[in-house]
Amino acid sequence: MQAVLVLADGSVFRGRGFGAPGLAVGEICFNTAMTGYQEILTDPSYRGQIVTLTYPHIGNTGTNGEDAEGRTIFCSALVVRNLPRRPSSWRSEEDLDHYLRRQGIPGLADIDTRALTRRLREGGAQNAAVLVGDVVDPETALDAARAFPGLEGADLIAEVASEQRSTWTLRSGHPAEAYRAQEQNAATHHVVVYDFGAKRNILRLLADRGCRCTLVPPDTSPQEVLALRPHGVLFANGPGDPATLHGAQQHMRALLEQDLPIFGLCLGHQILGLALGARSLKMKFGHHGANHPVQDLRTGRVLITSQNHGFAIDADTLPASVEVTHRSLFDGSLQGMRLRGTRVFSFQGHPEAGPGPHDASSIFDAFVASFSHRAEVTPHA
């Protein structure tokens, strides 16, 4: 199939189409991860985005049911430099081409992704369209790109979040091994997870630490959460502009009045900042990748982290009651904070990243440790 990527500024990239034929629009971003393309595709936080991967060979290891982080592919389209003709992995169940086609997602290969990435780094993120088919018209794609409203002001939570309450107890590992492990080790803690698009590995890592997770829809009231008698509450990741989530901010403020451990992760980190009176801002091209250095300001330790966010909390607008705990070494942006004198803290990156890196996964240990401490617990990572 023919394929074309057109940016809202008029830039045109022609290549070879794969996946599903059709037109897809979104904000285009580049991700610098060398592995984990299936994690990226199925991460609900990528809703409304076209993803280009800077690593040149994508699809080498195929796809499988175990590595999905959500119920489907959530990004609008995928752009790569080279698509291998066949995967090579004993775990592969389906090649990337058919995986995208089956889920209605168009793909574009054989373009200069380095040139595209440079354009986005220099000019910032912008709207774009991918058109795949037997015949493609760049003007049609350009009109669609310019008509896309963008992510600023976008509330996409209803498109990815749970509509009903559910329970998660499955641990890490292959399903048979995980089920055997949970039969031998019953959960000792209960965590309520506000599901704005929670990745499955967040739930697996909590289950590994003896937690039974109850996922609740975003509109669940604080009173309903407290009635579940949780040991802690996690505000999970998700897509879109955090400033639009007024209900979630109100829920956070109400729960802050309780002596309860609260962990904000990615979008949840931004919701905490906004609930405390800070402002959010749209980043130039966001943080997307698995090699982002973040410094723990209390220990000086540098963590290599996975990131996926296009918005950030402006640290200069935080109240004095908040301590900044982590900063990005790329641009100095806020990556972690805690509310002094409480068991409330947050992290902007993805400590649950799978296949990795795993430098920040100990933040989950700090969250679970806070269940048994009445005083604040420092979330060292």
Rank of each mutant, 00 (worst) to 15 (best):
T214D: 15
V216N: 00
P217A: 09
P218C: 12
P218F: 07
P218T: 13
S221T: 15
P222L: 03
P222E: 01
Q223C: 06
E224C: 08
V225M: 13
A227E: 13
R229P: 03
P230K: 03
H231A: 04
V233A: 07
F235Q: 07
A236W: 01
N237L: 08
G240P: 14
D241F: 07
P242K: 11
P242R: 13
A243S: 12
T244D: 07
H246R: 11
H246M: 09
A248T: 08
A248Y: 03
Q249D: 10
Q250C: 10
Q250W: 02
Q250R: 15
Q250F: 02
Q250V: 09
M252N: 09
R253D: 03
R253E: 02
A254N: 10
A254G: 11
L256R: 11
E257N: 15
Q258Y: 02
D259Q: 15
L260S: 05
L260I: 10
P261D: 08
P261Q: 04
I262K: 07
I262E: 06
G264C: 05
G264Y: 01
L265F: 02
L265P: 00
L265A: 12
L265C: 13
L265S: 14
C266E: 13
C266P: 00
L267D: 00
L267F: 09
L267N: 00
L267H: 04
G268A: 15
G268F: 01
G268N: 03
H269S: 11
H269W: 10
I271G: 01
L272H: 09
L272M: 15
G273Y: 01
G273L: 05
L274F: 04
A275E: 06
L276W: 05
L276I: 10
G277T: 04
G277C: 13
A278Y: 04
R279P: 00
S280T: 13
K282I: 13
M283W: 03
K284C: 06
F285L: 06
F285C: 04
G286A: 14
G289N: 12
G289T: 05
G289A: 06
A290H: 00
A290D: 11
H292I: 04
P293S: 05
P293W: 05
Q295T: 05
D296A: 15
T299L: 08
R301P: 09
T305R: 01
T305P: 02
S306V: 00
S306P: 00
Q307W: 05
N308S: 14
H309V: 01
A312G: 12
I313T: 11
I313D: 02
D314A: 14
A315I: 08
T317E: 08
L318E: 10
P319E: 12
P319Q: 09
S321A: 15
S321W: 11
S321P: 00
V324G: 02
H326M: 04
H326P: 14
L329V: 10
D331C: 10
D331N: 12
G332D: 07
G332W: 10
